[in-house]
Nucleic acid binder design. Structure first.
Lengths: 198, 198
DNA sequence: GTCTATAGGAAGATAGAC
DNA sequence: GTCTATCTTCCTATAGAC
């Protein structure tokens, strides 16, 4: 592993940390486990990161970004309001069913972050970002379909975000992907029913 | 602390563990912190519990029970379907706003449990129990009001449970109790709208 | 920068006197 | 049963040779 720049190593370590966390949980992602996963010696850790917390911040940033990049982009395109929402929700759900452990990790990370003074704001910002993303989706839909929402947008955005989050969490812990998918379809229909022609 | 039966000590330690977990998180609830909170010597721990896992199982059982005892019991009584649901949801929400850390602990505990082989089934059972509780609420309402639900009951129960869970989690991490409360009111109206006269 | 070796502390669990 | 002292293991972080 000679002659690999510290910057590249940082990325390799962040990726390795995410793999370990997905496989065994945040608690199992010790510095030893992470450098082991990346095939680096233990000492490499601390000239790439000042501390474990610094790594965690970068892990959270990486996870949040990949999620947002994919966040309900499928509501764009043709079709009625309900069709678009259904398409977006189902694309999200496919991802959850295919990679459940990746989604479990997002919950685990915010929880972990919420308990450490230095990371609490990071957790809060992460959730605020999800809320903002869903708000933007609602705004884009209203714009494209020339409608307004019959419920205040912040309330509807929170309803939407909480619904998706809650049904996902319930599925991760209890199972039954089919019923959960049906509940999400119901959610999309429900949101669509709040559209009023402007 | 002489002459206190091991059985009483077990209860004292479970209560102490819950206090520590609410205050500082599940990760901070070490055997030392727990016996310290209960004003007992370290050695007491292991003649009250075979292991830390045994304590955790009892903590989870205690938390789940206190939550279920209070679960939406307020939907009984007078009023229309929507009034009853609003009453139940608001009673729940009052509790969340008054004791947020207690609710945060339930999420933290299931997550912790979901990662340990010996406790995974406990986490799953906990969520299944919440789902069953909400199903019973829906059934009781349908019965009392002589209606049927226009959506399959398992789907509606999952929708309901996920919605409440998700909005709560979002509030705990992001804040804004007022908007969150409004979203829960919306949830109650929404569920009520699925009633069809039998 | 890169690695080996180790410091320094905290965790769960146990040994053994009383 | 009850408690003190201790064992073992694993953690983050650093020291110091190359």
């Amino acid at each position: 592993m000679a002659h690999v720049s510290a910057e590249v190593r940082r990325e390799l370590l962040v990726d390795a940390a995410i793999r370990v966390m997905i496989r065994d949980g945040v608690g199992a992602a010790t510095t030893r486990a992470i450098v082991g996963e990346a095939n680096m010696p233990l000492g490499a850790f601390h000239y790439c990161f000042r501390s474990k917390q610094e790594l965690l911040e970068q892990v959270i940033a990486a996870i949040t970004n990949t999620h947002l990049d994919r966040a309900l982009e499928d509501v764009t395109g043709d079709g009625s309001m309900e069709e678009r929402l259904l398409r977006g929700v189902r694309a999200y759900w496919d991802h959850v069913v295919r990679l459940p452990e990746e989604h479990r990790l997002t919950y685990e990370l915010t929880q972990y972050a919420a308990r450490r003074p230095g990371l609490r704001e990071v957790a809060q910002r992460q959730y605020a970002t999800y809320l903002a993303a869903h708000t933007r989706v609602l705004e884009a839909l209203a714009d494209a379909e020339h409608i307004t929402w019959s419920v205040p947008e912040p309330v509807l955005a929170r309803y939407f975000t909480g619904l998706i989050d809650g049904i996902t969490l319930l599925y991760l812990n209890e199972g039954d992907a089919v019923t959960a998918g049906a509940s999400l379809d119901l959610a999309a229909q429900q949101i669509a029913s709040y559209a009023r022609s402007a």
